[in-house]
């Protein structure tokens, strides 16, 4: 299928259209953050402003439309600027780890032999540790902070695209046009790039799109566990970690502090949902067998 056709179908497919609209919506929020929620200290826009020093979260009001979290952090501000954080985390992690994966997978698949064997065993080893556990230990060792979270997630996040890429390269390597290009004497590098990468791009895009969601979830999980973003940083997981002491509500009203969980939780869910919707629709379009 030509890529133009894929794009057209992506726009026609209702499911992916919902996904696209959601992503554009989040994109607008991320870009417009300085206008939607102007920072009080423009040099540190990612620090969520506090509306006081009280401990108890305050429900939504005209001043704080999403309410405030424990420590009077403004939830609205955290959500808006957290959108930027989510995009940044997602793009950096998925971009770099996909790049590593593509490189590793291509080389392993293309050169084959003992090189391939060694690379795949290394991949197995990285996959032998549960992802979240690996992310936790790596972040602990590097020290708290979003930058270290990203390093950890990249270190343990490249294997899927490497495997995918390798299998794609292996199947395409046998196909005629690659052999033909080989015979014409095109350099290795050109063969790899022109034919192989162009022909394997779609499965990788699906994988990357799905990973976008799961990486943002993992990063926010680390923040929630208290080893990711520092306190007060505009990060959705970090916002939710404020809610942990207030889950059981109070004064006979168990869901009194619902907004501390549901609002930031809803933001993460919708964000991941949008990427997953696109990934899923993409897969359907590219795999007509399953329609």
């Amino acid at each position: 299928m030509e890529w133009q056709e894929v794009v057209i179908r992506l726009f026609k497919n209702k499911i992916s259209l919902i996904g696209l609209i959601l992503i554009i919506f989040f994109g607008v929020i991320a870009i417009g953050a300085p206008w939607i929620a102007p920072p009080s200290d423009p040099s540190e826009p990612y620090m969520v402003p506090r509306a006081g020093w009280g401990f108890e979260p305050q429900p939504p009001s005209s001043e704080h439309i999403f309410g405030t979290a424990e420590g009077q952090y403004d939830i609205f501000y955290g959500i808006i600027w957290g959108t930027r954080t989510a995009f940044r985390i997602g793009f950096i992690i998925v971009g770099i780890s996909s790049f590593i994966g593509i490189l590793v997978g291509t080389l392993a698949g293309y050169y084959g032999g003992w090189f391939d064997e060694v690379v795949m065993r290394i991949t197995d080893i990285f996959m032998a540790i549960p992802f979240l556990i690996a992310a936790i230990v790596m972040t602990t060792i590097l020290g708290q902070g979003l930058r270290n979270v990203m390093i950890a997630l990249i270190t343990f996040g490249w294997m899927n695209s490497a495997r995918l890429m390798r299998s794609q390269v292996l199947s395409i390597k046998e196909e005629e046009f690659v052999i033909a290009a080989d015979a014409l004497g095109a350099g290795d590098f050109r063969i790899i790039f022109k034919h192989v990468i162009l022909n394997t791009i779609f499965p990788l895009v699906i994988e990357a799109s799905m990973r976008m969601g799961s990486m943002v979830i993992t990063a926010s999980t680390l923040s929630f566990l208290g080893i990711g973003a520092p306190e007060g940083y505009a990060d959705w997981g970090q916002m939710i970690s404020f809610a942990r002491n207030w889950i059981l509500g109070g004064e006979g009203n168990a869901i009194k502090y619902w907004f501390t969980v549901v609002i930031p939780g809803g933001a993460i869910t919708l964000f991941c949902l949008s990427w997953n919707l696109i990934g899923d629709a993409f897969r359907d379009i590219l795999d007509p067998k399953l329609q």
């Binding site: 969601g213 889950i247 509500g249 619902w258 969980v261 549901v262 939780g265 991941c272």
Partner: peptide, 15 residues
């Protein structure tokens, strides 16, 4: 697939 486990868990606890 899109709801983070910790969000789901907290809501379960709440309800």
């Amino acid at each position: 697939w899109s709801v983070p486990t910790f969000v789901f868990g907290l809501i379960m606890l709440m309800i």
